[in-house]
């Protein structure tokens, strides 16, 4: 455990260093002059030069990186070209929207995925199992924006039951959250089924049954608890693909979160914001994965991620 923990603690900053380097290099690799871009297309040459000095673009690259990393660590991600406001402020405004949407989607995915996977494992090779597996494999093959468009067409435009776009009331959450939940639900259902089937074959389940415990108790207390470890892992490791899904879902539903900010910023060539959002999102994913791994290692010392 100590060596494993130590190794993880060393790799974590190394990964974050790599991520920040990549994001930094990405902005430097942009076609055109960043100073001209920030100053605006009509700015006179003197203004562009002043901007270049102000941005420190005359300095050697390693120094520029150090300055970028230093201010990022201090919570300064530069200024948005589009709004002229600090990128951190832009992100802070959108972050709660993305987090709340992701939480609702996770809630749906965990409750539906867990129950479907359980039902499948208990009724192995019968219809609940087949239905779950069908859903699991179809759910992983559907473009979530397709589902979003169909839902918007029927439930918002034709029937008028739900708001088409935007955010505000609880009704605004229904379509985006379900759309976003489809993929993780499929993954969780599949994982729960596989994990439960493996656990049910273990000796201690036979023991629990042999001592006369009701099946319901065996399943809930003995099987599910032990099956949960890989399920929790998959939920933690899925955070990244959840964020990726949020980019598309938020854009379709005009949801004012981080994902839409990213897409809009690309469209407006607002590079500091693209850079900032990417950096924050990837750091969040890396931290989530790290926490999930630590949690699992604490629960079950036999498991190692190498």
């Amino acid at each position: 455990m100590p060596t494993y923990l130590l190794k993880k603690l060393v790799t974590l900053p190394l990964i974050l260093l790599g991520v920040s380097l990549l994001v930094f290099v990405a902005l430097r690799a942009l076609p055109g002059d960043p100073a001209r871009l920030m100053a605006g297309p009509e700015a006179p040459q003197e203004a562009v030069d002043a901007m270049r000095v102000r941005l420190g673009l005359d300095d050697p690259l390693p120094l520029q990186y150090l300055r970028f990393a230093g201010s990022a660590l201090g919570g300064d991600l530069g200024t948005s070209i589009r709004s002229g406001r600090p990128v951190t402020v832009e992100i802070a405004e959108r972050l709660p929207k993305t987090i709340s949407l992701a939480l609702v989607a996770y809630g749906i995915a965990i409750s539906v995925g867990l129950s479907a996977g359980m039902a499948a494992a208990i009724n192995r090779n019968r219809w609940p199992d087949q239905l779950t597996m069908l859903f699991a494999i179809a759910g992983a093959s559907i473009a979530n924006f397709w589902l979003a468009l169909l839902a918007m067409n029927y439930f918002a435009v034709e029937l008028g039951w739900l708001p088409l776009m935007g955010s505000g009331s609880w009704k605004h959450y229904i379509m985006p959250a379900i759309t976003l939940a489809v993929m993780p639900t499929a993954v969780i259902a599949r994982m729960t089924r596989a994990s439960m089937i493996e656990v049910v074959g273990q000796d201690y389940i036979r023991t629990a049954r042999a001592k006369g415990l009701p099946e319901r108790v065996v399943m809930r207390k003995h099987a599910l608890r032990n099956a949960l470890v890989p399920i929790v892992t998959i939920i933690g490791l899925n955070f990244g693909s959840m964020l990726g899904g949020a980019v598309v879902t938020e854009s379709v539903f005009n949801w004012p979160g981080l994902g839409r900010l990213l897409v809009d910023s690309v469209r407006f060539r607002d590079y500091p914001t693209v850079q900032g959002v990417t950096l924050v999102a990837v750091t969040a994913v890396v931290m989530m994965n790290f926490l999930a791994e630590m949690l699992i290692a604490a629960i079950n010392p036999r498991i190692r991620f190498d």
Binding site: G18, L30, P31, S241, L262, T278, A281
Partner: peptide, 24 residues
């Protein structure tokens, strides 16, 4: 493997958006 781990840390869509924003 360090390079691979760094790339792997990015959600696919986010990395693709970053690259497309550079390449056009």
């Amino acid at each position: 493997m360090w390079t691979m781990d760094v790339l792997f840390a990015f959600p696919g869509v986010v990395l693709a958006i970053l690259i497309v924003s550079i390449l056009g």
